[in-house]
Amino acid sequence: MRDILPALGRWYAARAPFGLATVVSVSRSAPRDPGAAMAVGPGDEVVGSVSGGCVEGAVFELAQQAVATGEARWETFGFSDEDAFAVGLTCGGEIGVLVRPVTPESDAAFGAVAASVARGEPVTVATVVDGPAPRGATLAVWARKVSGALGEPGLDAAVTADARGELALGATGLRHYGPRGERREDAVTVFLHSFAPPPRMLVFGAIDYAAAVARIGAFLGYRVTVCDARPVFATPKRFPDPVEVVVDWPHRYLAGTDTDERTVICVLTHDPKFDVPLLEEALRRPAAYIGAMGSRRTHRDRLERLVEAGLAPYELSRLRSPVGLDIGARTPEEVAVSVAAEIVSLRWGGTGTPLTETAGAIHATGSV
């Protein structure tokens, strides 16, 4: 939808009703992912696409009907392998499309969402697809505020927590709840559409531990880059396909790379000539997590060098070293789980305590 938001924003600002069709689910092969959208606006102007095939004809009519009736609809389009090519589903399959009317009265937050996306400010839009909650109802969720409602306070609270989780990863997809937001129930289907790029994980030091951390980072939804100054180690074949591999001095690469409050920095170089100038750069820039591998002796030596480099106590307090949670990890894969656990725990305010020893709510409701 991001590509058509400028047009939608103009229609919305002019208070011109439009029908918005969004792909909320796909199975097997489909030319557009969940979140792809098509809209029908004033004068039957069409922007966007949901399939690239003749599904658009049916969706066009549904969008017109949504504007005329003021009601949202969820339609599924399925195709056999023989018919799929003609409608853009090259290997057959099925797409689920939610079609809803959009006006300032039906979606008071739409203008703010469009403005946030234009500014590059992350936001997740939750929309009811099916169930006892009002179909088409929306809840816009930012890191520190919400706008709208889905019809029941408990549902709003559960969806807000999950939307912030999706926002942290830039993820989009369907979630299922009970009528009051109960977990592990599927009475209400909600589509969470996150307008944010995946957060970055920067891994420095192309060692075996880095390969394991890179794999789990990609699994968690991060855009992973591995950087090392040694070309013999920094080779793409040593890392999974989604991972970017860069040959450069770590501190120089980081100095030329944008980071934000969602960025994860893992320093696994384990060599003062690499990690001290790198950490000097990392600890003075925005990041959600900065962890460095090494023994306690290595950590003490590293801190002394960083103090000599002029870092202040509050900057040094950001460093997580030795890296990871204490789970008894030994192998590179186990260490990667330990690091990932610390990253998740820090993001949501977890304690690392076994759940059997805790009481109260299991799922954290902290913000990104």
Rank of each mutant, 00 (worst) to 15 (best):
G151K: 05
I327V: 14
A212Y: 10
H299I: 07
R347H: 11
R164E: 01
R215I: 01
G120K: 08
R2Q: 14
V339M: 01
A140I: 00
A341H: 10
P332I: 04
G170S: 03
S27G: 13
V203W: 08
E45G: 07
H299D: 08
A30E: 09
P272A: 10
D107V: 06
T22E: 11
L220H: 11
R230F: 03
K237G: 01
T351G: 08
G352H: 03
W11I: 07
L202Y: 12
T235G: 13
A14L: 09
L306T: 10
S367C: 09
L311F: 12
V47R: 15
A14R: 14
E121K: 13
L316E: 09
V40F: 04
A108D: 12
D107E: 14
S51Y: 11
H299K: 14
G165R: 15
D275M: 04
R285E: 07
A214Y: 05
D301F: 05
G221W: 05
G9Q: 14
G35H: 02
G324K: 08
G256V: 03
G78D: 15
G217F: 13
D228V: 05
A288D: 05
P354G: 04
E71I: 09
G151W: 02
T90M: 14
L268A: 13
D33M: 05
G53W: 06
T127R: 12
E357M: 10
R262L: 12
R184H: 10
V40H: 08
A72E: 09
R215C: 03
V368F: 08
G366R: 15
L355Q: 14
V117R: 09
R285Q: 12
A361I: 06
A288T: 03
P199Y: 02
A282E: 03
A282Q: 08
A149T: 15
E334I: 04
R302M: 05
A312Y: 02
V125D: 06
G93W: 06
P179L: 03
P250L: 01
A287H: 12
D301P: 00
L202P: 05
E56T: 05
Y177E: 04
P286K: 11
A84Y: 12
I207G: 15
A282N: 07
P134K: 11
L150G: 08
V276Y: 02
W11V: 04
V243I: 08
S338R: 01
V335Y: 05
I216K: 12
V129E: 13
K273F: 02
M38F: 01
S194W: 02
A21P: 14
R2M: 01
I207D: 07
G352V: 03
C266S: 15
V102W: 03
C227I: 11
G151C: 02
P17F: 12
E342T: 11
V99A: 00
L311N: 13
P153T: 14
E152Y: 06
S25M: 07
V55A: 11
R164P: 00
G53N: 06
D326G: 00
H299T: 12
T365C: 10
D107S: 07
W74I: 05
E56H: 06
E94I: 01
E61S: 14
V97E: 05
P236H: 08
T351K: 04
G41N: 09
D81M: 12
L220Y: 12
G205Q: 07
T160Q: 13
R305H: 11
D3M: 01
G96Y: 00
G151Y: 02
W74F: 15
A112T: 14
S29F: 09
D271Q: 13
A288Q: 13
A13M: 02
A140H: 00
P231N: 07
Y253C: 01
D208I: 00
V55Q: 09
